[in-house]
Each structure stands twice: as structure tokens, then as C-alpha cells.
Design a protein around this nucleic acid. Structure first.
Lengths: 213, 213
DNA sequence: TGACAGTAGATCGTATACGATTATACAATT
DNA sequence: AATTGTATAATCGTATACGATCTACTGTCA
């Protein structure tokens, strides 16, 4: 059954996408009246959407002053990756013995699509899709629901420099390596590769964030 | 600066406490009109509070049907503890080299208060306070903000059987052990004790939840 | 000139009102 | 008896309206 979404959830999706695609930049205010006018609705569902986005870490709410797109400091980015490494290794470890052949094929298909995807925002979506497909087998929905916003929160910065470097190629090689290790059920190796994969993304992002500020 | 809270946040605090103290039981509906009448306010801030509590995992929202206090299955409880073990060991490891003497004394004071606390709801609050005091030194606010709702979400079940067993005594012994290991900066030992501590809480809770359902 | 008070406009926060959706009770039908 | 249909009540969702708060600007006074 597909849950019918109310207006607030649709607004949250709309704003999340706008933030992710960089259409609304860091520290920019999200004016309730303005968004309401834009979407042709009232402020009520927008306020609820903002509470939701606050929980995801995408916006910061200042009482009586409004909502602002949150900024990620280098320290915060590194903290998020530390959390991701801790949780994603747990997820992958639990997943590996449960991965079915069809799951592995689906994950590989995602990588194939990523190989030829040029839109960076879409590429980061697929990036999470690949990881999530593997973690799905762990059957830990709560863990996934914690990981997803963490991924979203850093990926909006990743898109800013993805074009420049050979990051995508390196990242893809690491992805194929992880997938191969999963296929032969070599958990130790898969976890090592995943740690290196996330760690390298972490340092790349931290370096980028420091150079910007 | 102490953030001035708006009505929605106060409502969230009020409802969270009511759920935690068992005044509103699992699966019970949270009627917007009823709560609004009770508190003498309108539904608008209540709806925002419910979105917040949904993010914390305390309530489940069904579109057009209302909000209900969420239930924890044995599987979900065990998943939450798996997440907590992964994250709390990371936090404690980062914290140990940074713990100051005054922090250690404050944590010990919390344990002393717990020794004589008879109200179980208050005891679980202090329990989290003890853990959080240690983790604070890690300087990882995002990690703490993920851990807190996880702790809150299981503690409302812990209070249901805390009275019966010798759980509190065992738990306190483990707490003092962890604190001692922190004091002598023996990270390996502290992490081992923490893992055992959480694991035993996990199995106790899982057993309890299965016997209830 | 610089600090401050006062005011106007922008924006937020929430009470009220009402249409939309869902639940309930009960009659009609098979 | 079980099922379907319908009226009614309960509840949710959101638009509108307005008071409260904040921001920016202006003019006053030292």
C-alpha cells in the first residue's frame, strides 16, 4: 500500500529537493509566506514540513526569526562520516550473509547506471541507492532511516565538487570492489573496503569545506 | 543563550513526558482536538509537535487517521540496541582521552543520585544523563542528538519492569565499572564493559517484550 | 559623529473556521 | 448471518485572519 501523502510531506519533498539541488543555498532563509505564495497554499503545511526538515538536519529553526538552510562545518561533516562508518559497517556486516543473487544483480545494475550518469545530483541519489540496496538485506529499517538523512545532508555538498575531480571514477571502483567482496561473502574485506571508501569521501569533503570557508 | 521555546516545542515536551511516564500507552491515539482542549490552545502547534515526536520515533502518523503512540517490537528493540552499541562505543572511545577530572566527578555524582533514586522514570533519565556526561567529552553533538531519542524510545519500556528485577543493581555495578575504566583511561576495557552493559539491557528488554506480546 | 529610542514594515506564531476524510451505527440486501 | 449501503458523528487538514515579535530605518540627543 502506497501511503497517501499530505500537503506537508509534499512540501518537505519539494524543499528537500530544492536544497539538495543547490537551488536554495546554505544560510538562505526559507520564508513561509513566500513559499506559500509560490505553491499556492497556506503556511500551515509549510511549517510542518520545516519541522520535518529540521529533524533531518537540512534546516535550522530560529524561533520568531524563521528557518534557514543549515550549513555544514568541516567538523560536522567529519562527525557525520564517523557516524556513517560506524553504522554502515554494522549494516553491511548484517547484510552480507543475507544478500540474495537478485539483490546483488540489482546493486550492480545501479552501478552500471551510475557509470553513465552525468547529472551529479542524480548520481548522488544513485550512490545512496546502491548502498541502501546492500543494507536492505540487513533488515534494519530503523538503521536505514537514520542513515538516509545523514547521506542526504552531506551529498548536497558533494555535488558542488563532484564535477571537478576524478572522485566519481575512484568512488565507482571502490563500489565495484565492495560489491565483489559481498558476492564472495568476504565480510572482513567488504567492511575494510567500505571503511576506506567512506573515509576517503570524508577527507575529500573536509578538505573542500575548509578551503571554502 | 537559552533558546525561547515556542508552543509546539512545549507541547512536544509535554507529550514526550506523558508517553515516557506511561500515562499514554502504546497504540493509544493522540487526538488533536482533545489535547488542544486539555492545554487550552489550538491544534496548530500540536500538529507541529506530533511531527517532531514522529521524528523521534515516539509516535506514528497515519494520514487522515491521526497520531498513535508507537509500539516497540522485540526486533525493533534489538535493532535499536545494535545501533546504540555501534554509536556509543564510538562516542566513548572519542571521549576517554578528553574526559576532565571534573567531568568524571560529575558522572560519579549522577551515579550516587541513581543509587538512592526510587522513581523509575526519573532513574532512566539519570541513566541517560550519566552516559551523556561521558559522551559529552567526545564533542560530537550530532551523534548525541541521534542517541538521545534512541535512549528515550527504549527507556519507556525499561520502566515497566525495572521495579521487579535486580536490573538496577546490576546496571549500577556496570556503570561504576565503566567509570573506573574511564578514569584510568583504559579505553579497551571501558568499551568492552559498555558493550556488555548494553547487550545485557538489550536481551533483558527483548525477553520482556516477547513475553508480553 | 555615535548611541539610543521610536516607528513602520516584514515575518512569525497561532486561534478560529470550515471543507475533506475517516469511523461508527444501523438499515437494507443477499 | 454476513455483506453492502447510507446517514451521522468524529476527526483530520488547511485556508484565513490577526496579534506578537523581530528587523531596518529614521530622527533625536549627547
Amino acid at each position: 500500500m502506497v501511503q497517501a501523502k499530505n500537503t506537508a510531506e509534499n512540501v518537505a519533498d519539494y524543499l528537500r529537493m530544492a536544497i539538495l539541488r543547490g537551488e536554495i543555498k546554505s544560510n538562505e532563509p526559507l520564508r513561509q509566506d513566500k513559499i506559500a505564495l509560490e505553491l499556492g497554499i497556506s503556511k500551515i503545511p509549510i511549517r510542518e514540513a520545516l519541522v520535518q526538515l529540521k529533524a533531518e538536519g537540512l534546516v535550522t529553526l530560529h524561533p520568531n526569526r524563521g528557518a534557514f538552510v543549515s550549513t555544514l562545518s568541516a567538523a560536522e561533516a567529519s562527525e557525520i562520516y564517523t557516524i556513517r562508518i560506524a553504522l554502515e559497517t554494522v549494516a553491511l556486516e548484517a547484510a552480507i550473509p543475507r544478500l540474495t543473487p537478485s539483490m546483488l544483480i540489482q546493486a550492480e545494475n545501479t552501478l552500471r547506471v551510475m557509470d553513465v550518469e552525468t547529472d551529479v545530483a542524480r548520481w548522488t541519489e544513485l550512490n545512496w541507492q546502491f548502498h541502501a540496496q546492500l543494507y536492505q538485506a540487513a533488515d534494519m529499517p530503523h538503521l536505514i532511516s537514520i542513515l538516509e538523512p545523514l547521506h542526504v545532508n552531506v551529498s548536497r555538498y558533494l555535488v558542488l565538487y563532484l564535477n571537478n575531480l576524478g572522485f566519481q571514477t575512484t568512488s565507482q571502483n571502490e563500489h565495484y570492489g565492495i560489491l565483489d567482496a559481498c558476492r564472495i561473502r568476504n565480510a572482513t574485506h567488504a567492511l575494510d573496503l567500505l571503511r576506506v571508501h567512506l573515509q576517503s569521501a570524508s577527507t575529500t569533503l573536509a578538505t573542500f569545506l575548509m578551503s571554502e570557508m
